[in-house]
Computed example of a mutant assay.
Amino acid sequence: MENIFVFLFNSIIVSTIICAAAGLSNSVSLKIQRYFCFYCDHNLAWFDIIPVISACVLRNKCRYCHAHFGHYYAIFELSYILIGTLLWATPVTWITGVLLLFLSLEDCSKQSIHANILFPWIGYLLILHHDAHIYV
């Protein structure tokens, strides 16, 4: 039962990260209320954004304007859902993977990243794994 929860949770997180990275690369505010098609600006229904399943059913196209989104959305979703489920046992590794997934998607889109989101996480990791006996 826990594995099903983890799988579903990872699918929601990955779908949200993909949409956030796509929004940032297209200069869209993250404060929008609904997901929409970047080609026709049509608001997407709830059944249009089900992770992996919607991509397969719609064949990676918008239901309304039939613009092709590309296969990498479904590939990234499925890959990280599986990887995230495996990394779930160690939360530090899972969070690092989520951050790196976001940065890699952003890099694919616009060849630049918001690397400053890593600085607090790297600081936390340095504090968490600090070994005082090294400096003695």
Rank of each mutant, 00 (worst) to 15 (best):
132 A>Y: 14
24 L>M: 14
82 L>V: 12
95 I>D: 03
50 I>K: 06
17 I>G: 03
13 I>V: 15
134 I>W: 14
121 W>V: 03
11 S>N: 11
88 W>K: 00
125 L>H: 03
112 S>G: 08
105 L>P: 08
53 I>V: 15
104 S>W: 11
136 V>E: 13
125 L>V: 03
20 A>I: 10
36 F>R: 04
119 F>P: 00
68 H>W: 04
32 I>F: 09
89 A>G: 11
99 L>Y: 07
44 L>V: 07
52 V>Q: 04
110 K>I: 10
56 C>V: 09
19 C>A: 15
34 R>E: 14
59 R>N: 12
8 L>R: 06
104 S>F: 13
8 L>C: 12
96 T>A: 10
105 L>N: 05
38 F>E: 04
124 Y>Q: 03
107 D>S: 02
57 V>A: 05
115 A>Y: 13
5 F>D: 08
131 D>M: 10
53 I>D: 00
87 L>H: 03
7 F>A: 15
123 G>D: 06
16 T>M: 13
24 L>H: 01
106 E>N: 14
78 L>R: 00
49 I>L: 11
62 C>S: 13
5 F>M: 13
37 C>A: 06
93 T>E: 11
18 I>T: 11
128 L>S: 13
134 I>H: 06
97 G>E: 09
60 N>P: 09
128 L>M: 09
72 Y>P: 00
93 T>W: 04
15 S>Q: 14
55 A>L: 09
6 V>R: 14
125 L>W: 02
33 Q>V: 06
47 F>G: 00
109 S>H: 15
59 R>W: 01
117 I>N: 01
26 N>L: 00
36 F>S: 04
116 N>S: 10
10 N>S: 15
61 K>I: 10
107 D>E: 07
123 G>E: 07
89 A>D: 09
68 H>P: 06
11 S>P: 06
9 F>T: 10
75 I>S: 02
82 L>D: 07
69 F>M: 07
60 N>V: 07
135 Y>R: 12
106 E>S: 12
45 A>M: 06
90 T>E: 12
87 L>W: 08
7 F>I: 15
23 G>L: 02
22 A>S: 15
5 F>G: 02
5 F>H: 11
96 T>H: 01
47 F>H: 13
129 H>G: 14
89 A>H: 12
60 N>T: 03
1 M>F: 14
112 S>L: 08
91 P>I: 11
73 Y>T: 05
30 L>T: 02
68 H>I: 04
11 S>T: 15
37 C>R: 01
64 Y>K: 13
87 L>K: 09
72 Y>D: 11
21 A>I: 00
53 I>W: 13
94 W>I: 00
99 L>C: 01
72 Y>I: 05
90 T>S: 08
95 I>H: 03
51 P>M: 06
29 S>G: 11
